[in-house]
């Protein structure tokens, strides 16, 4: 699938939603709970369940990265499924917040 920066995706198996902060280098399959995500606003296939291998959960406001493709995602809605890219588990990106400056 083509994954553009700023595009929003929802899980086919749970409540997880993400927004693409940095796009991947090429086409990738973006998955949650082990199944491909769908563009927000489109209908998800029915009858799928979360794969136990991808059930660690996704948090809202956390960033997730896949080093191979360079993609960076932001969790915009939490869910029990975890994110993966072409089957590779996405990893949580360490964020070091700054002291409030605004």
């Amino acid at each position: 699938m083509q994954v553009k920066p700023g595009s929003r995706w929802k899980s086919a198996v749970d409540s997880t939603e993400v927004v693409v902060v940095r796009p991947p280098k090429g086409d990738v399959s973006l998955e949650c709970g082990g199944h491909p995500m769908v563009a927000l606003g489109e209908a998800a296939p029915e009858g799928l369940t979360i794969s136990p291998d991808f059930s660690g959960g996704t948090s809202v406001g956390k960033r997730y990265v896949d080093a191979d493709s360079g993609i960076e995602l932001l969790g915009s809605k939490a869910g029990p499924g975890s994110l993966s890219v072409d089957g590779r588990a996405a990893t949580l990106k360490d964020a070091k917040p700054l002291p409030a400056s605004d």
Partner: peptide, 24 residues
């Protein structure tokens, strides 16, 4: 652009990082 501003926000601020008693 939206991308400039949100990049600044998500890379410097922790989502819901403030306590309920905090007011700016």
């Amino acid at each position: 652009r939206h991308g400039n501003l949100t990049s600044y926000v998500i890379s410097t601020v922790e989502f819901m990082g403030a306590g309920e008693d905090e007011t700016a």
